[in-house]
Design a protein around this nucleic acid. Structure first.
Length: 804
DNA sequence: GCGGATCAC
DNA sequence: TATGGTGATCCGC
């Protein structure tokens, strides 16, 4: 019978132009499809596509027959059943998270255009005559898009310039943007080199009390001498820079700096602004209460735009009504076609036909459809870890981390004497083991030699059992400038925004550098990511909350000279970011030593391991982490965030934030083909038409699904049940057992601490960025002060967080 | 458990 | 000339 939509006359609908992509509206589809089909006809590829199309059509016919046999009674029964589930799902709707999906605009093409301005006004694509990975917006007007073979694209657009892929370059840019992502959500979930999901909820909680100085960002002195910023792709894009806010919250302050507000839209706009300043590439973003909606939103105002669906049921349902099912991640061309044969093209239709769908598709498939029809999606992105217990693997990972670290050291021209290995076992216990070498080292082999010994000792300590790890980090500290010059006088430059701190400044970072890796997670590990982080005085570049994308550095006076200064305190003293005391010296080594001492004191008294807390860090720490996760079966692609009680407090996570970039990076594999991917949505239909996606029950069972627990970010650590909670920031015992209250206190402390960190301890520094407060010694806001106390002695310890 | 189908990047 | 490569999930066998 109705052989469904279009297969008439041998036309292969599956080969038709897929214009479900930004920049492809209003094209002459007829002409484009004609060229595509003519270019393909007779090829093996075409034949195979024809075969697949036929199979799909047969499935549809079968489904149609099946549908005809469904009785009214069955439908009724299904209806009540569905209704019940819908209500339950609706009740469990979680609107408490602010999920952001960020997607770089025409990423590979944009990078190539940036690096080769002549391409700017030409239609171009990245890939080969066989296959294109992406195209710029100019080329899209001709129907040229990703996943199209270059030779066909050439027929559509004879002037098309095809540039070969350069993954190393894309990866480098990706690392830049990921550092920025980490500043807003250290647990962000990368989906590919140019795309990620972030949970902005925690960031916003803190941001609300941030002073304007922390929300002020400056244009970066264009490092790649490209004349106009963000030139690239879109002469016709809505707004050329994210600095044009939809609503009037924006404030321009002199010098091109811009102050961003405290709401989500502003935070996201700020993030896009930073990305653009840093890379001269633009990004688009979607803001919503869950990943599914956020993803759709990010495409809405692409390129260089953002869109938000407010966190209330009505807004979500309104948004869903007219949304074509094909826009939803997980619904591809086959699912679209099958649903279409049932008269379903929008999410509203999906909701109306749930009873029918429940009878025709597998349980996983219709449950997925049901969630879509309700506008539900993942609200948390926690990663799941797979332990690594094979010694060889551990050593190999350790070496990779050392390689990354060595690369950073080389780049910065540093050598260090103290090597610290940080391990987190499957019980979430954290250990740090350090050794100080007689002389400073910098190469992979040297660092690894020390780290390996530390690791081997740990492995032997538990043998014959296996050491089961969730995370590993390697840190190096006690730096000595490689060129061995005596550390010249340096002052801390407070720093600023991203960028200004490029290596070009000849800055000597201070305290530590480290790399870490979460063990295998969702994506195969890469080589390890590393980020540099330095603790102490980093000034958040922008975002105190978590990570700053650039480490704070201690710069020589020359460098600092570039920023004219605002009030410069006493040039002879430096303010310790840990104890906030003035250290009377200008010698960085002396100063760093002081900081190390302060930091080392924060370790908790836990025996030896699990120092988990303390604010962390002790020290300079902050391992950056790479996590990779392996999604559990049936779990949504989306990782959930912090559902894990681990924790010793999620407060730590925040702590980390203070510290630095902990970036979680997923690795990218070099992808020979196109973009890097991460396992993602699930597919849905299969032969008989079904596929799945997240299983609702799993979602709801994961503890965050429980509305009752949603608001509490902190769970009592095992063993702390009835004991007094001690703030990991100020170290003062809190007279409460209410975790919400406790978390609130911690947040306040952290915010306060950030202020302190921001206060440029010494001389010059950037002007505007610095917060008004300079030194409130220690005391913080509400309850108690953030200052960490220096206590203990030695140097090791420290901890840090790891996320969650 | 395997192979095929689907999906995403 | 020429239509990617990879990982993940689901389903049926």
């Amino acid at each position: 019978m109705e052989s469904t939509s279009a297969d008439g006359g041998g036309f292969l609908s599956r080969m038709a132009l897929n214009d479900n992509k930004a920049g492809m509206e209003g094209l002459d589809r007829e002409r484009i499809n004609k060229i595509i089909i003519e270019s393909s006809k007779g090829s093996r590829f075409y034949e195979n596509e024809a075969k697949k199309e036929l199979q799909v059509n047969q499935r549809i016919e079968k489904m149609t027959l099946q549908r005809a046999q469904i009785t009214e009674q069955q439908l009724q029964k299904a209806h009540t059943q569905v209704e019940k589930m819908v209500n339950e799902l609706d009740m469990s709707r979680d609107l408490s998270r602010l999920i952001v999906h960020v997607d770089m605009d025409a990423f590979y093409a944009a990078v190539e255009m940036r690096d080769c301005p002549e391409l700017k006004d030409k239609p171009m694509a990245v890939g080969s005559m066989s296959m294109l990975s992406t195209s710029n917006y100019h080329a899209r007007k001709f129907g040229v898009r990703a996943a199209m073979p270059g030779f066909i694209a050439k027929k559509l657009c004879p002037n098309l310039v095809i540039v070969p892929c350069n993954f190393d370059k894309y990866r480098a840019v990706s690392n830049e943007i990921r550092k920025i992502f980490a500043a807003y959500d250290p647990n962000f979930m990368p989906m590919s080199l140019d795309e990620a999901y972030l949970d902005f909820t925690d960031h916003l909680e803190q941001r609300i009390s941030w002073p304007e100085s922390l929300r002020t960002h400056f244009p970066q002195e264009s490092e790649p001498c490209v004349e106009n910023l963000s030139p690239l792709l879109f002469e016709d894009s809505p707004s050329s820079t994210p600095s044009l806010p939809p609503s009037g919250e924006k404030v321009e302050s002199g010098g091109g700096s811009e102050v961003f507000g405290t709401c989500v839209e502003e935070a996201v706009r700020e993030m896009r602004f930073r990305i653009e300043q840093k890379t001269t590439l633009t990004a688009s973003a979607g803001i919503a209460p869950n990943t599914m909606i956020a993803k759709v939103c990010s495409d809405k105002n692409k390129p260089n735009g953002q869109y938000r669906v407010p966190s209330n049921r009505e807004a979500v349902m309104d948004f869903i009504q007219t949304l074509p099912v094909r826009k939803v991640s997980g619904i591809g061309k086959v699912s679209e076609k099958m649903l279409s044969s049932l008269g379903i093209t929008t999410c509203a239709h999906l909701g109306q036909q749930m009873a029918l769908l429940s009878l025709m598709f597998s349980e996983t498939a219709w449950h997925h459809f049901m969630r879509i029809s309700l506008g539900l999606g993942s609200t948390h992105m926690e990663r799941t870890f797979r332990e690594m217990s094979v010694a060889e693997e551990q050593l190999s990972l350790c070496r990779e981390l050392c390689e990354d670290l060595a690369a950073d050291m080389k780049k910065e021209g540093l050598r260090g004497k103290t090597i610290t290995l940080k391990l987190k076992n499957v019980k979430f216990e954290v250990k740090s083991r350090a050794c100080t070498l007689p002389c400073a080292v910098a190469t992979t082999d040297e660092i690894f030699a020390a780290a390996k010994d530390l690791l081997k000792t740990e492995i032997e300590n538990v043998s014959p059992q296996q050491l089961q790890l969730r995370l590993m980090g390697v840190r190096i500290s006690t730096f000595v400038s490689a060129d061995d010059k005596k550390p010249q006088q340096k002052s801390i430059v407070g720093f600023l925004q991203q960028g200004s701190s490029g290596p070009s400044h000849g800055i000597v970072p201070n305290s530590v550098k480290e790399t870490a890796s979460h063990l295998p997670m969702e994506r195969p590990p890469p080589a390890g990511s590393h980020i540099l982080e330095q603790l102490p005085q980093k000034v958040p570049n922008g975002n105190p909350s978590i990570t700053r994308e650039e480490p704070v550095r201690v710069a020589p006076p020359e460098a600092s000279a570039s920023t004219s200064g605002a009030a410069a305190p006493d040039p002879e003293t430096l303010t310790c970011p840990v104890c906030f005391g003035e250290v009377r010296t200008t010698d960085l080594q002396v100063f760093n030593r002081h900081i190390d001492l302060c930091l080392s004191g924060v370790a908790t008294e836990t025996p030896t391991d699990t120092d988990s807390e303390s604010d962390g860090d002790g020290g300079p720490k902050g391992f950056t982490v790479i996590d990779e996760g392996v999604p559990e079966k049936g779990e949504d692609k989306e990782r959930q965030k912090r559902s894990n009680p681990e924790d010793a407090l999620s407060a730590f996570k925040t702590c980390d934030a203070l510290r630095g970039p902990s970036v979680t990076r997923a690795e990218d594999t070099g992808d020979p083909g196109a973009k890097e991917r991460r396992s993602g949505d699930k597919p849905l239909l299969d032969h008989h038409g079904s596929r799945r996606v997240h299983s609702p029950q799993r979602a709801s069972s994961s503890h965050r699904g429980d509305p009752a627990t949603q608001s509490s970010r902190l769970e009592a650590p095992p063993g702390h049940e009835g004991s007094t909670l001690i703030c990991p920031v100020c170290q003062v015992p809190q007279n409460t057992h209410d975790l919400t209250v406790f978390n609130h206190h911690v947040d306040l402390c952290l915010n306060q601490e950030v202020l302190h960190m921001l206060a440029p301890p010494s001389s010059s520094s950037s002007s505007t960025m610095r917060p008004p407060v300079t030194a409130k010694r220690g005391r913080g806001p509400p309850a108690s002060p953030p200052a960490k106390k220096a206590k203990g002695r030695g140097s090791q310890n420290t901890i840090d967080k790891f996320f969650m």
